[in-house]
Design a protein around this nucleic acid. Structure first.
Lengths: 122, 122, 122, 122
DNA sequence: GTGGTCTAGACCACT
DNA sequence: GTGGTCTAGACCACG
């Protein structure tokens, strides 16, 4: 995993977000085993406690499941995973819409612009 | 001006981008006088040379005009200013579309998602 | 490289001109490696930053190509090189013609004078 | 008079050349009175001795005539003046021809280039 | 080793 | 005061 840290927000949050993104992209699949806390900590050069906290919060959100003596796994619940993807999508779009509105575009104009951009890809 | 630096990209580039964003948003208008090199440098806590470089590059792009002994100004050319806004818009949209595609959405799905998000605002 | 500085014009400009002259004369050929920034700086006794700036501007003009960790090279584009020679030639001739006109010669007289000078060389 | 000094050649020589150029251009006419040594020295910010030396050498060349108690004058001899112009012309042309040859042009090519440049002016 | 960026501080030309 | 240039010296990323 590769993370470029932001320096303005807590690192554990950024780790959480990155894991969610990997799940949403399908790179981490349901039931899959994650790196161990120590491995990931070493890999991205942060303190193991920080990774631990990220895993803990994700477990609280029902996204991860830790099994003593075995490791940490992505949940088997497909609904949770779909939810992550939906939320991330929503987030990305809202951010973009806000930026475009701050540039003075109306919702109608935004729609037109995006449709034009997508035409090339269709 | 307020800039949160990225630490991974040259500062002078980030200054350039921030100024372009301010122009695109209409906060900096054609012909308007910018902060002096020294003022801005002090304000955002970088070396005057770094601000100077950002101004120089923007001048080369036709966006700023420097007048020795007077200051640095936004160009009077409206076309240049419109161009900045167009490019910035394009950039924002392309970034979003790419992110959504990496999440596995088809162009059609992206369009639908965005339309749904915009409905609330219309 | 040998440069006699002018004291009235920026050093980095004079370095640029000298490099262009060397290219036009064929002493620097397409694809050839230049002195490193530090070498040239030491050689002509200016600060490395000044040489760096000259190289940067020439890169922007498409005349040089910098490769980090490797060095700076003359472009492979022959058209660019031909262009340098053409521009330099134009410059030299225009300067002479202007000087002669300021001495009160008509274009016809200038032509005659030059033809006479060239006869010896033919 | 305005002189940008060269820093590499004696100042008195550069003053001599500038006066010759002014004569060749017709800005200084036969019999005309020159600035006094002190005036010119003050004007171009050099030591009066330096101007004195330039005047002395020009007097030796028959170009200037100094009259005690009256000042320094351009010679009345038209031939001398014509000579200056001829020499200067020759000098300018030779310099240009040499530069163009060093760029690899043949005399025939030089002639063609110059004729082309002059066509616009004819 | 290479180029690229940045800081600190100086001096210049222009208004 | 303004922008423009330059030096000295540092640190980084790349190969």
């Amino acid at each position: 995993m590769k993370i470029i840290f932001d320096e303005t927000r807590p690192i554990y949050l950024q780790i959480m977000e990155e894991i969610k993104r990997e799940i949403a992209r399908g790179n981490l699949k349901k039931g899959e085993k994650l790196f161990s806390v120590r491995e990931l900590a070493k890999d991205i050069e942060v303190n193991p406690n920080t990774v631990q906290r990220a895993y803990l919060e994700l477990e609280r959100e029902g996204i991860l499941v830790s099994k003593r003596g075995q490791g940490t796994f992505i949940t088997e619940e497909e609904k949770v995973i779909e939810n992550i993807k939906r939320e991330l999508t929503e987030q990305i779009i809202m951010k973009t819409v806000k930026e475009l509105i701050s540039l003075g575009f109306s919702p109608r104009e935004i729609k037109e612009h995006i449709e034009k951009s997508l035409e090339d890809k269709l």
